[in-house]
Amino acid sequence: MTKILRDVVYSVQDFLQIFGASQLFLMRILAGCPAAFLRPRLIIKQIHDSGVLSLAIIGISGFFVGMVLALQAYNSLARFGATESLGVLAALALTRELGPVVTALLFAGRAGTALASEIGLMRATDQLSGMELMAVDPVRRVVVPRFIGGVIAMPLLAAIFSAMGLFGAWLEGVVLLNVDEGAFWQQMRDQVDVYDDVLAGILKSFVFGIAASLLAVFEGYNSIPTAEGVSRATTRTVVLTALSVLVLNFMLTAMLIGEV
């Protein structure tokens, strides 16, 4: 019993230590952000690496998620004779929840791991030490552009995910299951609110972008400079990002809806 209690205390202590260190790291990153915008090329390259290179997985995933969503929803709605609501249901599910959350999870797996392992390997091969010895701050030169690139890329990717999801839902519902196309789009236009639904989804994906990018660069930068250390940092990036996104999603949803 004492051992279990001690383990719990140590785990909480570890968590608080990492949380505190990551917040201090975030402060260092934020301090470096204004200067980073003076060198937009570095940021554009990172938007390309984190965003453009993730387009395929995001687009394909969004498309199939939309198709499955339409298929499942059609069968349930058909029982109540409400298949015309398929469009609005798919749009709300995608813009409010599935778009931001699934994109963040996929981002952690594709771009987050790439960021963590790249920075971890830079540490393991003395590239970061080399920069420090050339009087260049690696946080400002390496970490900040990657962080900003991730934060900018995430909402764009979430929007593309939702758009591809809607296309998948339209293909499945309208083309394959013969749902009325006018009702599909009209109900969506009437009931999807730009502020409550679309902007809320963008806000969520922006927050997820901060969390996912911060965890990836933090884990990579602080990884042990060995093959095992980089591997562990990469794994932790995915696990911690997934957990953080799910917890943050609940908190943001509760805040946006105003009820718990």
Binding site: T125, D126, Q127, S129, G130, M131, L133, M134, A135
Partner: peptide
């Protein structure tokens, strides 16, 4: 550090 140069064992090229 701007006044010194260092050559690492593995080169440490970017």
């Amino acid at each position: 550090r701007k006044r010194i140069g260092m050559l690492f064992q593995n080169g440490a090229l970017l």
